[in-house]
């Protein structure tokens, strides 16, 4: 287990280096940040000065090498736009995003799995069909559209919820969180729902599919025949059997919701990293993009690692590290 973990994080290091290189190449291919940063009325001397100030006058590989040297010392560079260390900028915004992502995921999981179970156990009932048809609504319409409709209804027409921003925060273990204040919850409600919708639908559908299948497996039939109570059959035998794909998808979705809540954060002006990322990409603020994606890649590495560990816990037949099976 420990050896596995160490090996896994060793690999991650290579992933990080490779990732940063890709981002460098990508941003280089998109365009020249100076075009966007320098005031269009500026003269040539000013453009040259700005290019040098941002270190963009050096050859590409030299710029990348400079980044690597800095990164080795823990310095991921300063934002071109804000002149603040990129990592600081991201870490300041990260709690807001993680909070939003977790609330959304909790919503999706706590509703999605039970609803999916119901739909899977009674696939032909009215409720079962209703849940399935309803879940289609959750992913048919683009997030930005649903977000604005929510704002129209709850902020503009009813005036119940604030349309933008994050509410009042309190410090928990030094981290500002907003879900403990009324104001915070009011601000959280719409963006979290907006983000949760797609995941909710996906989870309902996955759970239903898994449940239907599990109900027909011999061991479930056997357990039922033995007269085990329904609750125990579902809680132990069915759930356990369907959890692997669900855990995978939850892992993937949690990662992507933290990383790319771009649209929701823009519409609701949620002060998180998604908004920072889209603004940085639009401004070609390379240090922030690189640092951001390195943070995200690390996040995915951790999530995927946890998910892989969970596999082996959920199903002992899955061995960590996947010892080659072909022999």
């Amino acid at each position: 287990m420990l050896a596995y973990a160490i090996r896994r994080f060793g690999q991650s290091f290579i992933v990080l280096v490779f990732m940063s290189f890709l981002v460098f190449v990508g941003v280089y291919a998109i365009g020249n940040p100076v075009e966007l940063l320098v005031n269009p009325q500026a003269d040539e001397a000013e453009r040259i000065r700005a290019t040098a100030a941002l270190g963009l006058d050096k050859p590409f590989l030299e710029q990348y090498w400079g980044f690597l040297v800095g990164a080795a010392k823990g310095d991921l560079g300063k934002s071109f736009v804000f002149n603040v260390p990129a990592l600081t900028l991201i870490l300041e915004k990260l709690p807001a995003t993680i909070e939003l992502a977790f609330v959304a995921m909790v919503l999706a999981i706590s509703l999605g799995i039970p609803l999916g179970l119901v739909a899977g156990l009674k696939p032909d009932s009215f409720v079962g069909r209703g849940i399935m048809a309803g879940s289609i609504m959750g992913f048919s319409l683009p997030t930005f559209w649903v977000g604005l409709v929510l704002i129209m209804i709850f902020s503009v027409h009813l005036g119940w919820l604030p349309s933008n921003g994050r509410g009042e925060t309190v410090l928990v273990a030094g981290i500002p969180v907003s879900f403990l204040t009324m104001d915070g919850i009011a601000h959280l409600a719409m963006p979290a729902t907006n983000l949760a919708l797609f995941k909710l639908s996906l989870l309902i559908r996955l759970t239903r599919a898994g449940t239907r299948e599990a109900m027909l497996q011999d061991y479930v039939k056997f357990a039922r025949a033995k007269g085990l109570p329904q609750r125990r059959v579902i809680g132990v035998h069915v759930l356990k059997n369907i959890l692997i794909p669900i855990v995978t998808v939850i892992g993937l979705e949690l990662g992507s919701v933290i990383a790319f809540a771009i649209v929701t954060e823009s519409i609701f002006a949620w002060p998180g990293t998604g908004k920072l990322l889209i603004d940085s990409i639009n401004q070609l603020d390379r240090p922030v993009i690189v640092a951001y994606l390195l943070v995200i890649v690390s996040l995915f590495v951790v999530i995927n690692f946890v998910v892989d560990v969970l596999y082996s816990l959920l199903d002992p037949r899955v061995r960590l590290g996947g010892a080659a099976a072909a022999h």
Binding site: F18, M19, G26, V297
Partner: peptide, 27 residues
Amino acid sequence: FGGWVDTLVMRIVDIQLSFPAILIALV
């Protein structure tokens, strides 16, 4: 196959999952 094949593929997946769609589309 597991082993290094799994490792290689899954690490590429890690990178790919972390790469935002907008950045890819923009490039």
